[in-house]
Simulated assay, not measured.
Amino acid sequence: MRGKLVLLVAAWLLGIPGFTARATEPTSSVVFIEVGYMENGVFQSVGEGTGFIVHPAGWVVTAKHVSDAEIPAGKIRFIRGAVKSRTAAPNQLFDVATPSVSADIALLRFSPNLKSDWPFLKVRANHVFKLLDDVTAYGFPEKKDIEVRPGVVSNLAGPRGSMGVNVGLAPGMSGGPVLLGSGRCVIGVVAGGSGYPNFDYFMPLQFAKPLLEVPPAEFVTVVTASTDGGGAVQAPIFERPYAVDETFDEHREGKSSKTYSIDFQADPGSKITAARLAEASAAAVFDKVLNIQGDRSKVTFKFRLESGPFYDRWRGWWHGQVVLTQQRDTPQASTATCE
């Protein structure tokens, strides 16, 4: 079985035709997740949420605050997932070593000994978000079975780099997929918990692309035809937002200040064509500069925050996004669609 799994994964990585496991509908790839511990052979739940499968070998994406739910001291964390319904037979999910990302997104995995043809969803990690984009969220809200909630993007600058949505999200849906329109292409992960004023936000998958390259997920790239009549394909232009969340809260006899300089690199094989700030909240911030390096491989965001003296104690902060517009050096043909 192990040898067969290795061959299947290798075939997928090399793009060999025939590796075509797909979800017949998005709900077939949505996972009800419970976190807890075992006591006397009985599972004790401390939290629950939602996830979704992104690779046929059983790799599952969820919200990090779901998988990190607090368990009692001295107990061993046990995570399990049931596909499509909370009443389906659960299987253990395992933590895996992954790159560190700032987003509230985590990667888990079912045992490779279970099977290698899990139905999965494709990932669109270069989506340029617009107000009123049609989206559909999936999850297990408030002790209910799976629900499908359509809506639109309502806010492009939510907390911690998230996007607002009007679909009526609820506790238990955290970690669930947000799909573009009514298709099968994931563009975000339902956010929630600490740091969000309510649950009507999702985290764009741009923030977790290094994480999702581990399995790897199947990425969908949008390309456009040229207008020169030659039938060529233009190198795609896309946006990549990065969250910035800095607070300066240092109080001395007099006013204090601190200068920040944060670099943002272009994606491999891409160049930065433009950069902009999407400010969500700010106070006592000065000297904001957004500079694109000459070879267009990097953007530097510089700014200064001030805080008041110990008898006043006001603080400075800047919360928002640095959004890079990028163009790939060479055209990329799309190897998958969202249909």
Rank of each mutant, 00 (worst) to 15 (best):
residue 336 A to R: 07
residue 270 S to K: 04
residue 205 L to Q: 01
residue 310 F to H: 11
residue 200 D to M: 01
residue 40 N to A: 14
residue 181 G to A: 01
residue 331 P to A: 10
residue 30 V to E: 02
residue 66 V to M: 07
residue 281 S to L: 07
residue 91 N to F: 15
residue 329 D to H: 07
residue 15 G to F: 06
residue 235 A to K: 08
residue 197 P to H: 01
residue 268 P to M: 03
residue 182 S to D: 11
residue 209 K to R: 14
residue 12 W to I: 10
residue 247 T to K: 15
residue 98 T to Y: 04
residue 108 L to V: 07
residue 79 I to L: 07
residue 19 F to H: 11
residue 221 T to L: 10
residue 43 F to G: 04
residue 148 V to K: 14
residue 289 V to G: 05
residue 289 V to W: 02
residue 196 Y to G: 00
residue 308 G to I: 05
residue 103 A to D: 08
residue 100 S to Y: 14
residue 316 G to S: 08
residue 301 F to H: 13
residue 291 N to A: 11
residue 10 A to V: 07
residue 169 L to I: 06
residue 78 F to H: 13
residue 240 R to S: 13
residue 330 T to P: 01
residue 301 F to G: 00
residue 294 G to Q: 14
residue 7 L to N: 15
residue 82 A to S: 15
residue 143 K to G: 13
residue 188 G to N: 03
residue 201 Y to N: 00
residue 133 D to M: 01
residue 324 L to A: 01
residue 165 V to I: 14
residue 286 F to D: 10
residue 70 E to V: 15
residue 57 A to L: 11
residue 131 L to S: 07
residue 184 R to Y: 09
residue 296 R to W: 03
residue 148 V to R: 13
residue 16 I to K: 11
residue 325 T to Y: 07
residue 303 F to G: 01
residue 156 L to F: 12
residue 251 H to L: 03
residue 197 P to K: 01
residue 108 L to D: 02
residue 169 L to W: 03
residue 91 N to K: 15
residue 213 E to Q: 13
residue 193 G to Y: 06
residue 44 Q to Y: 04
residue 81 G to T: 08
residue 257 S to P: 00
residue 136 T to A: 05
residue 41 G to E: 06
residue 68 D to N: 14
residue 13 L to G: 10
residue 148 V to Q: 14
residue 88 A to W: 06
residue 216 P to N: 06
residue 118 W to P: 04
residue 237 I to P: 03
residue 214 V to A: 02
residue 322 V to M: 02
